[in-house]
């Protein structure tokens, strides 16, 4: 549990392998080209030796299963009818894409994604500003408070919100009875809009800290001189925001939005715990779960999974191409 332990495994490799080829930042030596290419080759080899294991593990845990899912999605196959497995080509996809359920669930999923990310962005930005500007004395406690939702288990968050709003055990109805539309007879989980409200509230509560931390990083990169200069020029707070701060954090905002959007698109835990998809709250992950795990229709379930994966890829592609979110660049690229 000491901080040194995880770092140690690096050292042997470094000791043995980096010694001969000093490293890219090293003093440039004016030796022969052959020696240079030797060094380059050694560095490449070392690079792959170090990065390879992680790379292989990542591929093994995801590539194989997705290939398997693609293969299974071409069959009509029910786990409890092993004898009736039958190749049907793209039949499963046809069934899914011509079914309203898919499109309805896609709509709900997109709705959740858009609303939660939009609110999280605003709320997260406010929190980031608070943390950025906070007096030293409260910075620590603030950070601690904000990190609690981040670290909490989603399932726990789902239960907490569910119990608070539940018509039988919850106190929300009696607390907010003064609001129009809320009284002790309001059953939050009996219809889509109110149920989605609670689901999204739990999702937003749990993940806003994440987005606010990403934005905080972006905020820290806005050079103080620019803001100061604007202030000197007599810009209002809002003008400073709009003209200086936000344009300078565009990359951070884009990355934060993309990460969260992809995460929100895969929402499962909150819906599963609170409504299990009842009354128009079903999302795509739950649809995949129901086909392959509840119905044991492996073929159909795999096809939903593959489509879900494709949706994620499309969102990612659109974000990167259309909005030019440069993730690798944001990382510091080369």
């Amino acid at each position: 549990m000491t901080s040194a332990i995880p770092a140690r495994p690096v050292s042997p490799d470094l000791e043995q392998d980096t010694t001969p080829g000093v490293g890219p930042g090293g003093p440039s030596d004016k030796k022969a080209a052959a020696q240079y290419s030797d060094r380059v080759r050694a560095e490449r080899r070392l690079g792959w030796m170090l990065a390879g294991p992680a790379f292989i593990v990542m591929l093994a845990v995801t590539l194989y299963p997705i290939l398997q899912a693609i293969y299974e999605s071409l069959f009509q196959f029910r786990l409890t009818a092993p004898g009736e497995r039958e190749f049907i080509g793209l039949g499963n996809y046809l069934v899914i894409l011509t079914d309203n359920v898919w499109w309805k669930d896609l709509g709900v999923t997109l709705l959740i994604t858009v609303i939660t990310v939009a609110i999280e962005l605003v709320l997260g930005f406010a929190l980031a500003l608070v943390m950025h500007k906070a007096l030293k004395a409260v910075r620590g406690p603030l950070r601690t408070a904000i990190l609690v939702p981040y670290g909490i288990i989603t399932v726990v968050s789902a239960f907490a919100w569910f119990y608070a709003f539940d018509i039988n055990s919850g106190y929300v109805n009696s607390w907010f009875a003064w609001l129009p539309g809320i009284d002790s007879d309001l059953n939050w989980f009996a219809q889509g809009p109110t149920a989605l409200f609670v689901i999204m509230a739990s999702e937003i509560w749990k993940t806003t800290p994440f987005i606010s931390l990403l934005l905080l990083a972006g905020l820290a990169q806005v050079p103080d001189e620019l803001t100061e200069a604007a202030k000197v020029d007599g810009a209002t707070w809002w003008e400073q925001m709009r003209k200086v701060i936000i344009p300078n954090m565009k990359a951070a905002i884009m990355v934060a939005v993309l990460f969260r959007a992809l995460d929100a698109f895969r929402i499962f835990d909150n819906v599963f715990i609170m409504t299990n998809g009842a009354y128009g709250t079903e999302v795509l992950s739950l649809l995949a779960y129901r086909q392959s795990i509840s119905r044991l229709e492996i073929g159909l379930g795999s096809a939903v999974s593959v489509l879900l994966f494709l949706c994620v890829l499309i969102i990612c592609f659109i974000a990167i191409k259309l909005f030019k979110v440069d993730l690798a660049g944001a990382q510091g690229g080369k």
Partner: peptide, 28 residues
Amino acid sequence: RLDFPGKKLVLTTALAVSIFPVISIVTP
């Protein structure tokens, strides 16, 4: 620290894996 071909591939793979819908790979 090192310069090697495929660096970007590794990072992209990491990104792709992190956006992977967990539900998609559970059954296989």
